[in-house]
């Protein structure tokens, strides 16, 4: 009996605790900066090095490049860039190896859709997805890597 009463005391005391619940759909959640949501892609920065497609553990990135339309500049320009979001596991390895930070994660995680077709993200969608773009990328692949704030 005594144990039960002690337990009940704890439960009743928690009535006076601060509420920790949030009313989520009405109050949007902002994720911390490093959050790994769906990617944002900037075609201008991409140099078609293919590192992201190679490192992806589930091989969900497919990309093609075309020769630079400007005859003086060398290198390739990105033509199509698709992420099959059905199999993307949001692991962040693609942003880690990108040398130019062309692909970065955003903080958008509300990605449910009514049909599977919408889950195949193409270049236009990824380019438009530029809200909540992650600032701190800790890009190990980039030459001048900007590390996150050390203490």
């Amino acid at each position: 009996m005594k144990g039960l009463l002690k337990g009940l005391g704890v439960t009743l005391k928690s009535l006076t605790d601060k509420k920790v619940t949030t009313s989520y759909p009405d109050v949007p959640i902002t994720m911390p900066d490093r959050y790994r949501g769906i990617q944002h892609f900037e075609p201008d920065k991409c140099i078609v090095c293919n590192q992201c497609a190679r490192i992806c553990p589930t091989e969900c990135i497919t990309l093609t490049g075309k020769a630079n339309p400007d005859p003086e500049k060398k290198g390739k320009v990105i033509d199509t860039y698709d992420i099959n979001f059905e199999i993307c596991i949001l692991c962040d390895l693609c942003t880690e190896v990108c040398p130019t930070e062309a692909i970065v994660m955003t903080g958008n995680f509300e990605l449910a859709s009514y049909s599977r077709d919408e889950l195949f993200k193409d270049l236009k969608w990824l380019d438009d997805n530029n809200s909540n773009v992650r600032q701190d990328n800790n890009n190990i692949g980039a030459p001048a890597a900007a590390k996150g704030g050390a203490k």
């Binding site: 790994r36 800790n138 190990i140 704030g149």
Partner: peptide, 25 residues
């Protein structure tokens, strides 16, 4: 953990030779 490495459950945090992110301020 979310603040540290960007995910709540599947962290992908350790790498061979260290960890990926340093602790934020």
């Amino acid at each position: 953990f979310n603040e540290l490495c960007g995910a709540r459950l599947t962290y992908n945090y350790m790498r061979v030779g260290g960890v990926k992110w340093d602790a934020p301020v």
